[in-house]
Design a protein around this nucleic acid. Sequence first.
DNA 1: TTTCCACTCCCCAAAAATAGCGGGGGATCC
DNA 2: GGATCCCCCGCTATTTTTGGGGAGTGGAAA
Lengths: 242, 242
Amino acid sequence: MGYVEQGTGRDALFGRLETAETPEELQQLIELLRDHYSVDHIVYHWVNSNGDQYGCGTYPKAWVSRYLERGYLRIDPVVQGCYQRFHPVDWKRLDWSGKAARNFQRDAVEHGIGNQGYSIPIRGPNGQFAMFSLSSNCSDEDWDTFTEEHRRDLILVAHYFNQKALELEPGRKPEPSQALSPREVEALTLLGVGYSRAQAAETLSISEHTLRVYIESARFKLGAMNTTHAVARALSRGLIVI
Amino acid sequence: MGYVEQGTGRDALFGRLETAETPEELQQLIELLRDHYSVDHIVYHWVNSNGDQYGCGTYPKAWVSRYLERGYLRIDPVVQGCYQRFHPVDWKRLDWSGKAARNFQRDAVEHGIGNQGYSIPIRGPNGQFAMFSLSSNCSDEDWDTFTEEHRRDLILVAHYFNQKALELEPGRKPEPSQALSPREVEALTLLGVGYSRAQAAETLSISEHTLRVYIESARFKLGAMNTTHAVARALSRGLIVI
DNA sequence: TTTCCACTCCCCAAAAATAGCGGGGGATCC
DNA sequence: GGATCCCCCGCTATTTTTGGGGAGTGGAAA
């Protein structure tokens, strides 16, 4: 049983996925995965309102640009469905009843996306949200069999794609921030859960003035303009948890 | 090759995990998984300051209650590390340099948690955050070999545990997390990046009063006590990104 | 040992946020 | 066609937060 690093078997593809180092390699791998699983398309992309984020896949260019131009992101039931769920979703179990959704679906089929689809939502730090989708043209039974058989693998592939994308994508620099003192953490946390300064001070059994000093200190360390900003920064840097 | 539904082999455990229907079953499975992988402890739990959220695992009761009592959540480097990362983390690669962190570590070892650990961060909709951790007492080399060998399986197990927990936990219903309007999102986002109300209003080209209405509306929808609370909630539910 | 830093406390004036009242136009869904 | 929601604007008043000072303790590091 040879383990061929550059092969196209399941294990070889997984191994290459775990060691990929460039976006081009990921693009190549996504095409190999498409062939391996014999589906029409596979696509991995980030989702946010900016729209200009990372993505790779096998969708026709025409469809991708049409999708962006028309702002389909806002009406795509797949995106809506994935955003609200944790587990992978089969496209046919989504709500396609809206008029906009049906138009979108027709448009997608006309662009050769396929009538069947399966999407895995993925979430990372700082509110990152991405999707890994496969689509094809086949019967409901065949698609169910396929997704049932490869479910576990697909979750892993989606996971690795996101991991690589996070590693390779610039603009995600760790933003080295000065550590907060325990008291500062407590102060910001209490403010983050809705306490007023007076309440927070009472909870910590210190004077409100002292609490204020902590907040000011934390604000300075975090480079924040005001309390709200400081709490927001501490939250998004994982310094506090609410 | 018999597929034994009630067995304790890898495939059997995975199958049971995918079909579990009660929290008790999950607790039983986590113990079987611990035996299967021959580690000291496995634990799956949600992370937020309420503390009273779902969790199951094999940690001694004494340690769990001590952890909660002392608010270790706020100083646990594993939590901090997982919160900022997407990929699984080996405990020994975290920052244990702080005094509080070292005390925590000593306390943990004294409670029999083990010197080695591996944690997988998991994120769900509405800002849900959970961790799946394994810990044991062994050499660095043995632990590296173990995690390297079972990495993929562990990611899947963590994924399934979270899926089941989300399905089984009733507490996710009462807070459907009413969606914010686009304007409300913009308003909270600007406040989150440090703008004052006046600046935010000017940026959005609306009157400060109108901006105020959005903030109040968002605060109401989020059940927040004040602006800072609203921004914090919106952030931790993934409604805004800064 | 001295020099940091975290922690604690206090005053005051200015700025910001909150709370309440009122008004109107437009879209969409039932 | 009415209900509901989003989008915009006006006013006044009160409370809270903020930013600028200054001052003392203890412990840890250099």
